[in-house]
Simulated assay, not measured.
Amino acid sequence: MRSSIIKTLAVLAVALQVPPSVSAPLELIPVSTAPYVTGGGLSATWSQVRDDYRFSQQMWTEAGSDPAAIGTFGWGTGIWGTVDVAHVQSLPNDSAALIGRVNDTSAVNFANLTYNMLIGDGALGHWEYDRQRPLAPIVQQTGSQTNYAASFAGFLYIPEAGAYDFSLFVDDGFVFSLMGANGMLGMERETLAGSTNGRDLFALSASNGNTTVMMGSGYYGIEIDYFNRLEAGVIDLALWGPQDQGWRSISTDWLFTELPRNAIPEPGTLALVLLAFTALGRQARKT
């Protein structure tokens, strides 16, 4: 699920985006500099499908064959890539493929029971970021540990101007977007297909020229699509700011489902035109 505000910001970001450069520091300008109010989390939708549901559009190449969607192979059941998240989230609540759905407001810091149990007995080793985390809401509802997706959307408040970096500790895949008034930065891990490591820490700086991002104090748009296929699953959104000595998870205090009422940005004429074309295209696809 995506709020209309986030959609507007995404269009505005594309209209004003400046490509990152290794030779110059990256910079994002806040979409609003309204006074801080205590946040409550991002808007989150969790959806889970049956393990035998065959639908994935993630591409795969068998030896001697052309690329084909994983869902066309006999073994290709369940979620295989971030390309599948939109399909899972669009399933109607009464779909036979859907096990459960949870709409929530929260931080981005969850694991499934499989992950937490393996951490508890040391089976995952003792990597710095491995620790028990709150149980994913969809797992709490269904008790099932596999083939679920989550979509987070809203705003992040940055209290102090300076250099920042963002990370996601993830098992299995994700797409992350951070939006300012002058552009958008992102990072992703599209799929686990062909990978030998399902769990890792991904930094925004490493995905954008190995440099941190200069940010002013204020509000920024944020979107995350995430999935866990099988076995252990975890997602943790963290930042490294001017006063930090390491990564720290972002609490709900700095996360918002919408901007404060006096902080709604006024898009420029070009952005409004692009938004109109986007809306028309979306409507055309539905008809």
Results as ranks from 00 to 15, higher is better:
Ala149Val: 02
Leu237Ser: 02
Ser167Cys: 11
Gly143Trp: 09
Thr8Gly: 13
Ile99Ser: 01
Phe110Lys: 02
His126Thr: 12
Asn112Gln: 10
Val83Pro: 03
Phe166His: 04
Thr61Cys: 04
Phe176Leu: 07
Ala206Arg: 07
Glu27Gln: 14
Asp253Glu: 15
Ala161Asp: 11
Ala68Ile: 14
Asn93Trp: 09
Ser3Val: 00
Arg199Lys: 09
Tyr157Ile: 08
Ser90Cys: 11
Ser151Met: 02
Gly100Thr: 04
Tyr115Thr: 11
Arg2Gln: 12
Trp247Pro: 01
Lys286Ala: 15
Ala68Asn: 14
Leu185Ala: 07
Ala10Arg: 13
Ala263Ser: 12
Gly154Ile: 03
Trp80Arg: 01
Phe176Gln: 01
Asp172Phe: 03
Thr278Arg: 10
Leu204Pro: 00
Glu258Ser: 13
Ala97Pro: 09
Gly64Tyr: 12
Ala279Tyr: 00
Asp171Glu: 13
Thr212Gly: 06
Val234Trp: 02
Ile235Leu: 12
Gly154Lys: 00
Ser167Gly: 05
Ser106Ala: 12
Gly233Met: 06
Val83Glu: 06
Glu190Pro: 06
Ser207Cys: 05
Ile6Leu: 13
Ala15Tyr: 07
Phe176Tyr: 11
Gln145Glu: 15
Ile224Asp: 01
Ser3Trp: 00
Asn208Phe: 00
Ser95Asn: 10
Leu274Ser: 07
Phe155Cys: 05
Leu237Ala: 05
Leu113Pro: 01
Asp51Tyr: 13
Thr61Ile: 09
Pro19Glu: 01
Lys286Thr: 09
Phe174Ile: 01
Val22Glu: 11
Gly76Arg: 04
Thr45Met: 02
Thr269Lys: 12
Leu230Glu: 14
Tyr53His: 11
Asn208Asp: 08
Gly122Cys: 07
Ser43Leu: 02
Glu231Val: 14
Ser90Asp: 09
Ala97Asp: 15
Thr212Arg: 14
Gly183Met: 04
Ala24Gln: 11
Val22Gln: 09
Val18Ser: 13
Asn147Gly: 05
Ala10Tyr: 04
Met184Ile: 15
Arg248Cys: 05
Gly268Lys: 02
Gly180Tyr: 09
Ser43Ala: 06
Ser249Gly: 15
Ile138Arg: 06
Thr114Glu: 09
Arg50Asp: 11
Gly221Ser: 10
Gly268Asp: 15
Tyr148Trp: 12
Asp165Gln: 03
Thr8Gln: 11
Leu255Arg: 04
Thr8Lys: 03
Glu188Cys: 04
Ala97Cys: 09
Gly221Asp: 10
Val213Ser: 04
Leu168Ser: 01
Thr114Asn: 08
Ala150Pro: 03
Ala150Trp: 06
Ser3Arg: 00
